[in-house]
Design a protein around this nucleic acid. Structure first.
Lengths: 289, 289
DNA sequence: CCGTTGCTGTAATGAATGATACGGGATTGA
DNA sequence: TCAATCCCGTATCATTCATTACAGCAACGG
């Protein structure tokens, strides 16, 4: 497919070690395990952790205080104070010119892949109206029937993810996992009040089409998550979410579909007539004692 | 409207002033001369000066150390440590979403949720170096052992998604689904050449920690996908991917972790010494005839 | 002009921090 | 498998830090 660069994950290279972050990136390979944990903890929320005390730093990294000191020493600093001074100077310089950094980040994304994924999400939501989303939320709120979820080869995990949340928010949620037999058996229970959420992106799977067809004949409402070229299931679907899936990769991306699913779960939980909060606390009390 | 769920960095409110800067603006008029000089010095390059020691702060303001402490006390803080903690928390919150301001000026995103998700993805990759990603790709390329994948309550689908792709790219891929017994049984097979990919975001699950611990003891390399607050598994991990998961929702978002996983799969497939292309076509010919 | 009040700096103290020496334990190579 | 090396954590030390007490000083009102 498209090869944007001979080197993987290319980012703009600012020369060598102009910042502590780059210094760490260079040397982290040649570090022992403990110091590498320190580096990872620091990079996880850079540079705040480095501004705290050695004890706090070490606690967050899960290592002993001396390991932190060895870590800064390996980076080339004479003592912890010098290290912190360097971080503070970087921070000061960064805070003084927030605009230049903001435009830097906004224009050139980390990698072509990330840029494409972000574009996909934005574009997906640009083509989704609030009315559509609200309608789907309303459909999923209907307590008079069950909600079934199913997906294809690569989208079934997305269905499972959505089912995991939905099962907490409301009762009667069932994830129809991979096996066709399992799906067929559940079909006989489907009726007019039921909803089935199907994820199907290219290459569209016949088994899902058959499932949708059968569910449709039984009167179930179909919510379809597909790509921008629309699965044939769209013919039977009550609601269609068309997400952008193209990325510079050999594989398609389901990120945009996942964001839509998460946004729906968020709204569903926020809904006034939803007793999600009560169910969550009830489930937690069931789990702990 | 928006309920930012319980958050490690959320701190007690010291009145109606939302930030220390506003607090100073309110009270600076009613201050004695020396303390006012302290306030001015702090505001001159906020908040760096407040993060230094009392002695340095006092030197920069041209007053004595006790004056700094009286200044802090007048702001309502009980001691200097509380004051610095508050400043650090503000800074952390500000650094966590530096791009949101940039998107404010440009195009406003469809919903706060989408904006947060996009920021999360960008921020996650800003903290991930090329070298880290390449190292993970290299680790996952090692054919001399197996690759196991496991996840928590909501992240297990992400593990499954990654496993679905990885199983096509290379042999020896195994998704350790939910059941602990299943996981325990597989542990005895793990050795020095094996890799285990674990997804664990808050609330961190003990079962995953035990799994990681055991795998680590057996010499397996751990690749950890977690949130920015770092699962305790980070202690045992060879590689740590710290994704941003905070969104204006009752649930956390795994979108950033998914994007990282997809980016890794993309690179892994593109790799020159990967026979992914051959495997893909071979598998397709197995399915169709 | 003097007494009072309030602000500020110097000095001393106890706590907490960064730094170091040492021994156990894991890892690596032969 | 064994030995050498390196790594890491516990315990300890010296230092620095924040904090408090106290005295000098200026400002203000009587």
């Amino acid at each position: 497919m498209i090869s944007y660069s001979s080197h993987p994950f290319v980012k703009p290279d600012h020369g060598m070690a102009s910042s502590v972050a780059e210094l760490i990136a260079e040397k982290t390979d040649a570090m022992p395990a403990g110091e590498r944990r320190a580096a990872q903890a620091l990079m996880a929320n850079y540079p705040i952790t480095g501004l705290r005390t050695v004890a706090e730093f070490s606690a967050q990294a899960g290592v002993s205080p001396p390991t932190i000191l060895r870590f800064v020493s390996r980076l080339g600093f004479q003592n912890y104070a010098d290290f912190q001074a360097r971080l503070q100077n970087e921070l000061a310089a960064q805070l003084q010119s927030p605009l230049s950094r903001a435009t830097d980040g906004a224009e050139t994304d980390a990698t072509p892949f990330v840029a494409a994924a972000v574009d996909n999400v934005r574009e997906t939501f640009r083509h989704l109206t609030d009315r559509q989303l609200s309608a789907i939320v309303a459909t999923l709120s209907n307590r008079r029937g069950h909600v079934y979820l199913a997906g294809g080869r690569f989208t079934d995990p997305v269905a499972a993810y959505m089912a995991a949340h939905l099962a907490i928010i409301r009762p009667g949620v069932l994830h129809l996992s991979g096996q066709d037999s399992n799906r067929r058996d559940r079909l006989i229970d489907m009726g007019r009040n039921d909803v089935i959420v199907i994820f199907d992106i290219r290459r569209y799977q016949d088994s899902l089409l058959h499932l949708a067809e059968a569910a449709h004949k039984r009167g179930a409402q179909i919510i379809l998550f597909t790509d921008q070229w629309l699965s044939p299931i769209a013919r039977y679907a009550r609601h269609v979410v068309a997400g952008r899936t193209a990325v510079p990769s050999a594989w398609d991306s389901v990120v945009s579909l996942l964001v839509v699913a998460e946004a729906l779960m968020s709204e569903l939980t926020r809904k006034p007539d939803s007793d999600a909060a009560r169910r969550i606390s009830a489930l937690e009390s069931l789990r702990e004692p």
